[in-house]
């Protein structure tokens, strides 16, 4: 499965109300490290398949959500289960460290 583009419009449906855990990558186009995280997120999405929703959220276009979740450093990857944040990764993170959460 490829990653889902998240926005304020679909965040509730894709992440909060998701029946499977969700992984959200908070990023920006101008952020160098975020570009390195992008291919890792694609690999994670492939590896997890239907087991989880893997989404990317552009903080420039969705500042409200970045603020709501207290994101102050990018990339930040949040793991949601039952609509709640259960794990936070700050900075470029190893694929396996993230997959271990599933």
């Amino acid at each position: 499965m490829s990653t889902v583009k998240l926005t304020s419009e679909n965040f509730n449906k894709e992440v909060i109300q998701s029946e499977v855990p969700a992984l959200v990558d908070f990023y920006a186009d101008w952020c160098g490290p975020c570009k390195m995280m992008a291919p890792i997120m694609e690999e994670i999405s492939e590896a997890l398949g239907e087991k989880a929703t893997v989404g990317k959220l552009n903080i420039d276009q969705n500042q409200d959500l970045a603020m709501e979740y207290g994101v102050m450093s990018i990339p930040t990857i949040l793991v949601f289960k039952d609509g709640k944040v259960v794990k936070t990764f700050v900075g470029v993170t190893d694929k396996n460290d993230i997959l271990n959460e599933f």
Binding site: G32, P33, C34, M36, M37, G91, V92
Partner: peptide
């Protein structure tokens, strides 16, 4: 870290 290189 600034470049996006994985660190542990």
């Amino acid at each position: 870290k600034k470049l996006g290189i994985l660190t542990k």
